[in-house]
């Protein structure tokens, strides 16, 4: 297929103009001071130094903590779901996986809005609790409501890759393990879990990436005061207007994510080679 080499031009131009140059632009902004032009600028570390202020450090730690918890819950709930789905007949599996994706066809914001109304003080859940005399429980604008929104929205991204790798698994390996005297727990850990690792890695990476950088869901379910990295970036660009600091935060977030993805891929490769 050598003859197709020159067809690369449109793609090359697109990726250079719309991916590479804009991303370099934030690196440029991150290292310069406000009011600089492309031709007259001065290099500075100031934007990065501001991270060491407690307010910003806390925002970053909280984002990563929340991303970690969301990923863990999605894995804990999603893995068994994917596993149980994989034990149905092939046709039923197709339908069930379709059912996992259908909620994503309804606008994400609208689903989040539905959660706002479910969780609010006089919402449906609290009305039910009130009837059971369990009293209204304040759930909105807390870590809990944000977690509910994140987990419910990103669950399919965990289930689908895990299910895919469970499907690809050679089922005769399970029989072999059983025949060789492994009990069911051993078979699961030594065969099923290990072979589904690529799917788990994929799912974990996806959910973590989405959760750590989400900003619409925390804004709606956590309220205006709820600050995660995404909200911090948005406020720097839109309301504060400090593009340089905003770029520095973005750069740090992007670098951390790209490095952790690289590490996950490496780990995955090592495990497969074992």
């Amino acid at each position: 297929m050598k003859q197709y080499r020159h067809l690369i031009r449109p793609y090359l131009i697109w990726s250079l103009v719309l991916v590479v140059i804009p991303l370099f632009l934030i690196v440029f902004y991150a290292f310069t001071e406000e009011g600089n032009e492309v031709l007259t600028f001065s290099f500075t570390w100031k934007n990065f130094a501001r991270f060491l202020e407690a307010t910003y450090l806390n925002v970053i730690l909280k984002s990563f903590w929340l991303g970690f918890i969301t990923t863990a819950i999605c894995l804990l709930l999603g893995y068994p779901l994917a596993y149980f789905i994989s034990r149905f007949s092939e046709k039923a599996q197709d339908t069930l996986i379709l059912l996992v994706t259908i909620p994503m066809w309804i606008n994400m914001l609208l689903r989040t809005y539905a959660w706002m109304n479910l969780l609010s003080d006089n919402g449906i859940i609290n009305q039910l609790l009130g009837r059971l005399n369990l009293g209204p429980v304040s759930m909105m604008y807390t870590d809990f409501s944000v977690l509910v929104g994140l987990v419910c929205n990103f669950m399919p991204f965990m289930i689908i890759p895990i299910h895919t790798s469970l499907c690809k698994m050679d089922k005769s390996l399970l029989e072999a393990a059983m025949d060789l005297g492994a009990n069911r727990v051993q078979t699961f850990w030594k065969v099923t879990w290990k072979l589904s690792m690529p799917g788990v890695v994929n799912g974990v990476m996806m959910v973590f990436l989405l959760a750590v950088s989400s900003f619409v869901i925390p804004k709606l379910l956590g309220g205006g005061q709820y600050m995660l990295i995404g909200n911090l970036i948005e406020s720097q660009f839109i309301s504060v207007g400090d593009w340089n600091f905003g770029s520095a935060i973005s750069m740090i977030l992007a670098v951390i994510i790209l490095i952790s993805m690289r590490l996950m891929q490496k780990m995955d490769k090592l495990q497969q080679e074992e």
Binding site: I26, L209, I233, W243, G246
Partner: peptide, 27 residues
């Protein structure tokens, strides 16, 4: 490298893409 660039927009958080593009178009 080219293949990495190809999937970069899916790995970089949406919010960063949004503001990067805003700054770029503004420039």
């Amino acid at each position: 490298v080219l293949e990495y660039i190809a999937i970069l927009p899916l790995m970089v958080p949406e919010i960063i893409l949004g503001m990067v593009l805003m700054a770029f178009f503004y420039m």
